[in-house]
Design a protein around this nucleic acid. Sequence first.
DNA 1: GCGGATCAC
DNA 2: TATGGTGATCCGC
Length: 656
Amino acid sequence: MEGSEEGDHPWQSYNTVYTTAKAGMEGVDKEKVQRIVYEMSKGSKYFQNEERKEAFMKHKIDNMRLQFAKLTQADLSHYQNVADRRILELEASRDLSRIWLHVDMDAFYAAVETLSNPTLKGKPMAVGSMSMISTANYEARKFGVRSAMPGFIARKLCPELIFVPVDFNKYNYYSDLTRKVFQRYDPNFIAGSLDEAYLDITEVCRERNVKSEEIAQEIRVGVYEETGLTCSAGVAPNRLLAKVCSDINKPNGQYVLPNNRLAVMTFISSLPIRKIGGIGKVTEHILKEVFGINTCEQMLDKRSYLCALFSQSTAGLGKTDSPQVRFRKSISNERTFSVTEDEVLLHKKLAELAEMLSTDMQKEGLHGRTLTLKLKTASFEMVLKANIRGCSLLIDIVHEKFYMSSLSKSVHNMVFVLPLLGLRVSQFNGEKSGATPDPTQKTITNFITSGGANRKHSSFSDVADHDFVSDTETDVSIDGRHTDQLDGRDPFYGNHSLDVNYQCCTLWKNGAEKVQTSDNDDPNSNHSGCTEVLGSTSFQGQFQGKNVNNESNLPEDDRLNSCRETIMLWLDDYKCSLCGAELPPNFVEERLEHSDFHFAEKLQKEESSIRQVSTPIHSQDQKHRINRQSKSKKQKLSHKEGSCVQYSINSAYGSY
DNA sequence: GCGGATCAC
DNA sequence: TATGGTGATCCGC
């Protein structure tokens, strides 16, 4: 049924993530849905990217088949032993005694929206937009509409579909109500997300001497009474299985898997691997294509092959009863927008992202060491660039990516069309020690900034201070601008930028044509301020550092304007006399910002010696407990094939 | 340690 | 017209 019929039914080979079975989709004409999805997608950039990924996956599968074929009998018996030994260990360490309950709200967002607008009841409805649907109610699911599907396709499937925009305030409110109920049964319950939770109900069952089934029923009734929303529950000896179980009688139902080995083994054996958390579309496909594995039982049969071809990373089911604090490891934000080749606009968007991120970090009291830029090209390829600091040029990153990755594209096609930008900060300082940052470290303040002194025309709003703690002397830091001014070099234009430019120039030499303006080998004369990823906005933060942000109103504005004029001018009405940046005359706002930048630079040089450098912000205890589902010791919930395989084996044998 | 890919919700 | 946002993890360099 697969690709063979492609000529007649090309949609059958277009496997989207929403072709898999989901609750509420039983009676759906899958063939028809798949055809419509295909027809709506065909030819789009998104579609082309899916094809690219599909080809990559096929390649991976071919490689794995080759390896598979190369395995000798000796290899296999060796790995059989490895697998069996591992299973024995897990058998020995398994704990049958706990009773876990997983609660999952039914079509949560949609249900909440229906509560607040009862006229929606009974009508097909989706929460989301024309671009993306978060949740669809059960009426809509009958048409094949489901989460992660773009709205315009959903509307094709169901023309009368009602769209409701997301409103997280509501969902948070109702989520809190449900959690009050959960708390009564397990004060240490684990919140998986707004609409999911894991409860260890072992003690409740024991103390009250009632069956888990009754507790599940009670909880569901309690949630309904508290919120008016229905949910489903699954009960099993561990969290992984409980989650699988909560999906079985959805919506508004429950399923109990008893705590005995036979029941679990029977349950597992026919369970499709895709049901297991961590096994997604790709992994499922690989396991099916290479090994012919569909169910957990088949996975067990092939355990020697799997151990031979996948990594041995530990992925056991560890203890499930020890509450643990999980620390956030990164914080990020990203935005999708309609493609633009307006570089200035892109940098403005980036500055906005930076500002939001900075605010979020401040709220959480976070300090990171690595700043990563994420972008998506017009052909939907994701690109990451770590450690961009304040020196990288967005355009360099894009150019580099294009030169490296697609020779087929002509240089002229390297336009700046980006539908997505994002920023992420990671590598936080360990908060556990409670120590303040090492004073010898450079604090990068205001790596993200914005907000001038009451400038109405500013596209940036107010500043966040703090943020980054760099741990090496050689790090490029915006903070350097506070401290390094005295040596007479301008770090903004200084040699920090050379690395990037050097790479870029090298690439250009190898490439066919030079696209960007020339002079990139001269660090002192080339960069247009507006192309600095983060730098162009930084001065405003420095204003804040001096607390001038709210000092005055109109007079300040006037002063700014006159100063701008005294330190720079625009050659031929479009070229900056100080740095050579080129901005068309009609870029009024951008030119003002650019002027501000130079002005701030000047101010900063004059006053840098007065300024205090860092403003360490102490964490407000970032140990906000997201949940305690973090792995105990060996329990690494892994998402990779190898680990998932192992994980599943463990869930089948180790934990059961 | 970085960049890409996968996964979950 | 049009395919999200946030966080995590693993693998191969």
